[in-house]
Structures are given as C-alpha cells and as structure tokens.
Design a protein around this nucleic acid. Sequence first.
DNA 1: CTGTTAGCGCCTTCAC
DNA 2: GTGAAGGCGCTAACAG
Lengths: 351, 351
Amino acid sequence: MARGTGTSSAKMKDVAERAGVSIKTVSRVLNNEPHVQEKLRQKVREAAEALDYVPSQSARSLRGNRSYDINLVCHVAGSNYVNSIQFGAVFACQELGYQLSISLLENLGGKSIAEIRSAFEGLMRRRKPDGVVLLAPYANDEKIGFVLNEMGIQVVRVGPVDGTQNQGLLVEIDDYQASIDVVRHLTNLGHKRIGFVRGSQDQRSAHVRYSGFCVAMEAAGLVVDQELVRPGAFDFAAGYDAGVHFLGLKQPPTAVFASNDDMAAGVVAACTERGVKVPDDLSIVGFDDAEIATRMRPFLTTIRQPLHDLGARAIHELIGSFNSSTSKNSAHRVVLDHELIIRDTTGSPPK
Amino acid sequence: MARGTGTSSAKMKDVAERAGVSIKTVSRVLNNEPHVQEKLRQKVREAAEALDYVPSQSARSLRGNRSYDINLVCHVAGSNYVNSIQFGAVFACQELGYQLSISLLENLGGKSIAEIRSAFEGLMRRRKPDGVVLLAPYANDEKIGFVLNEMGIQVVRVGPVDGTQNQGLLVEIDDYQASIDVVRHLTNLGHKRIGFVRGSQDQRSAHVRYSGFCVAMEAAGLVVDQELVRPGAFDFAAGYDAGVHFLGLKQPPTAVFASNDDMAAGVVAACTERGVKVPDDLSIVGFDDAEIATRMRPFLTTIRQPLHDLGARAIHELIGSFNSSTSKNSAHRVVLDHELIIRDTTGSPPK
DNA sequence: CTGTTAGCGCCTTCAC
DNA sequence: GTGAAGGCGCTAACAG
C-alpha cells in the first residue's frame, strides 16, 4: 500500500527524508530562498522530482495568508478584446504558479461605494484573491479602486485611465498616439472628409481615441465635421448604424475611422449591403486587430493592440508587486507598443 | 485598534466566544449539521453575522474538504465557442457560490497516461478543484477522464463523446440530428450537389456531424461525392481553403455545409472574393450560431447551439452531483435543444 | 548555513 | 447534545 498509489501525494516531510535534510531546508529550496548550499539544493530538487512532489496550496495559503489566486473582473459581455487579454493572463498565471479566476460584474455606473463594496465582497468572500485585474469599463472607476484598496487587494488596470487614477499598476498602449497614426495614414492617402465612430462613453479609451483623432485632424489642417462624428458602443450594430448614416449623407465621408474592429466591420457590412466598394468608395480603419479583422473581406486595416501581452504583462506586474519590497502602493505604468496594420480596407479617396 | 479595521477577519473562535458556545458548535451550525439546539443555532448565526465572519477557504480545504473551486480546462486557443460556454459557466458558478478558474492545456494527443497525469497534477494539485469541466478536444479523451477520476475529481463533459465514455456527467446537443436538419433544409430547397467541410479529427463532434450528414444524404437518395468532402480544423482558414477548392471544381456544389460557423464564414469569404453570389450561386450553412454568423454579410444560416446554457447547465450538473447522495460516479446525460436558424446564405440552387 | 518549535483556522475523534 | 484535544502541510521565528 503505502505510497505510489498516485492518489495521495508526497509531503514536504517525505522530500526531506529522501534528501536527508530537514523540512525547513526543503521549504527554502522550493521557495528559492538563499542560505542553502548548492549541493543540498540539488539533492532536494532531485528528491522532489522523484517523489513528484507538489506543494499544497491550501497549507501554504493558510500559513502565509496568501491565496495564490488572481481574479479577473470583467463585464457581463464577452468580447474578443476581453477574451484575448484573459488568455494572456491565464497563461502568465500558470507560468508563475498562480491561478486565474473570473468574475462577472454587472455595470456599476452610478453605484455608491457601499453598494460597490458589497458587490465585491460577495464576489471575493470565498477566497480572497491576492490581486485583481480590472478591465474596461471598470479600470477607470475610482470607486472600485478605492474599495479594493480598502480590502487590501492589489490592483492592476488594463487600458487607459483618467489622470486622477495615477496610482497603482497600469498596463496599456498609447491610444492617443495610435489614433494619430491612423489619421496620418488616411491623410497621407489624400483623405480630407474623415468620419469617426466613437466608443462607449463609459470607457476612457473611447475618449482618448477621439481626442487623438481631433488633434491629428487639426494638425493636418482639417476640420472635424460634427456630422461625421457618430456615437457608438464598441459593438457591431453601432458600426453598422453609423455606416448607414454616413452612406445616406448628401456628401459622405471618403474615409471612416471606427474606434474598434467590431464597429469597423459594421461599417463595412453597411457598405457591402449597399454596393459601396471598400476601399474604392470608402476607406475604413478599425482598432484592436481582433479576430474579425482577418475574417472579413476585404481584410481590415487597423491598429494592432498586443492583447495577449497586455494580459500577461498585467499579471507579471501584479505578482511582481507582491514580492517587491516597495511600498504596497507602488505606482507603475507600462506602455506596450501598438502597430498600424495596413490591409485592404484603406486606399486613396475616390476620383 | 482591535477589529473593525475591515482587513483582518473574525475566526470561528471569535464567533464561539461571542455566542457563548464551543468552537465545534459553531462549526456544526455553519455546516448545517444536526444535533444542535435551535436556540444555539440562532445565537451562533447572529454572532457570525455581527462579526461578519467568513470561513477561511484555505483552512477548510487543508482539512480535507471542498475548495468551492471549479476548473474549466480548455485548449490553448480561444474561440467564440469556448468563450461562450465559459461565460455561462462563470455565471452559474457565481450564482451557486462557487468560483470558476481557467486552465490552459497543450494538446495531449497521443500522450501516455503518466504524462497526462503529471500535466493535470501540475495544474490541479496546487489547489484541487471540486470539479472539472472538460471541453473539446479533451471531453472525449478517455485517458484524461481516467486520470481525473483517479484523483477523485468529479468531471462534467460538454459536447458529444464516444460510446465508451458513457459514464459520468455529460451535457450536449444532438449534433447528429442537427446535421440531419441542415441537410433536410438544403434538400427541401432543391439542392443535390452538397459539399461538406469537416471539423478537426480529434473532436468527436466533427465525426458525429459528418455521419449525420451522410445518413441524411442517403435518406434523401443522394450520393456523398468524396470530392465534395473537405477536411477542416474548425477555423476560418480551413473554410476558406475548402471554398477555394469547391469553386475551382469543374462542377462545383450548389450548397456547402460547413461543420462550424468560422469555416462557413471562410467559404463565404472565398465566394465574395471571386464574385460568386451567396446564396444565388452557392448556399452555405454553418454550425454554432457564433458571433460571426451575424457579423458577416449575408447573415449566415446555421444551427444554434445554446452555448451559454451548455456552460451553465454543466456547472449545475456538477454541483448537483456533489450534494446528491448518489454514488459519486453518477452518470447523467443531458441533451439541450438546438435550432436551425435560417438566414440569408441559403436559397434555391442556381437555374 | 541549517534544524527545531510553534502554530495558521478548521474539522474529525472521542469523551462527557 | 455538546466540548476538548489533535493534526492537515506548510512556513515564520528563533535557536544552534
């Protein structure tokens, strides 16, 4: 009987015995702590390997007051954006010995601090995560940051955030510059009447992209015609509606910049239905380089956001902050590179 | 100082003191065990409430009980299919007081039991989940089922599974019947030359859908021309390739049934590029009713799979099985309804 | 540099 | 019906 059944696993004690050292030494080696001879290190590692030893997370958390759990809070609506970030995050967690769990949160807009606190406590009661990843539209909510802070949970935000939020961890791309890049691409092609489809008002990125657009237009000596600026909600339907609107205009734009790919695809769909040629009659640019960008025809010109890396980096920052001796409220902002991907939906303006 | 800081929480001991009972009594009450006077029950509950007591998950699982954690194992490639199921699962978990965590697993095809065991142990032994949700392509892997079973982890599979696997929990739709529905729709329209794009060979659903296709063709008195059956991998590119192949044939099919929406969209894209009209020249049907089905033009005719419900139901079955007194290996199979959604990619054959 | 001692918070075993 | 010990596997604190 004894061991070897595969079911019951080896404990630290077993490893210690097999390696001929004390339990504490095993603990030291496994946690990469200093003050152990290289020889013993080897021995312990071999013993652990041979016994197929896996540390018990429960025991560890109980003793160390850590859960080794990171929670990704997202909105109750799956999108390729969220899923890609999540994917990168799970991957990084696995690599670092953490576990990623997912929470869904209803829209909290306008809720009081007390309500928000209770929502989070309900969510995290069972197992308090060591850290939380906040995605749009929650990344920019200062109340949520306050509540989490109060609960002693470290936070990392992904995506642009208000100036007032400039504390804590942040991982993003330069949305502002990316928008400028788009407009520049379009004006280089000779476009002058450029339409814009905005994102959801409750997401900071929507505003940053719009202001980048405006500034770049101005820099190019062009005016922003308010008739060519349409509201949106980062979804296909909004893009489609905007497209229908643009095409119905007496003087339609020759190019449209949509704040994300789903909306750009919607604009293209409106064109396709009406026999408007893309890019011959209308150039279209998106933002994100989501899956849909290469699953539509023509292929979408867009800004590539390294979604996978954003997620992975967020996790690395978070976990790094646990181990860093810096004050727990270490503010750190990392900006990843974006890239303009020129495909088939942009060209010179008609005639 | 003392308590009230919100950060440090009350323990069972504190509750016991406040209620004037022993620790064990508190434990009994909180776990709804019998043999406690109603009076004490009340007292304990009040004390717990007043102290805002939350049991420590780590201590609980260390002592050998449940983790209230359910793990969703999926392949290292996000897809709308997986994400939709996951969404339903998270939602259900939240409702039932469980937490959903995600694991990514490399393809295990052809690996030995020992290798699989070690992969899972690495994944789960850190914190053993109470249950695991297995999605394609892992749902049908009997070795994985064996290993998990050996580890004492309850499993629920989503999607079709081999006959040999007829033990344990299973949630699926009737893929076979759904395929028959598709062919019937096409033959009713008058199609006789019908092409088929297969799914990944390692997923059971691919085979079930194909055999449904064959049977229905035969039932309609049609032959399955092997030149019109193309391999696929459930992704856009495979559909596109198949489409290119079909359109290059001397005698192309008048309709194509692709085993999922991504591939159907690929076929449509091939048509769009070549100026082939859908559905006038070629009818196309997909499977899943994923996001892309309504983000492409024309809208895709497809089979709707209740992905959200499949995920939610899987969780309910799993958690239900924990509480049921039935033997732990309760086999249960639930089949959810599918629906043929007729949109704009199907019509009568040309001429 | 290494080993011993004491719990972390909970639940099970056994007395009362 | 209820309570008092003891230990799950690990690591912080202190010896040696």
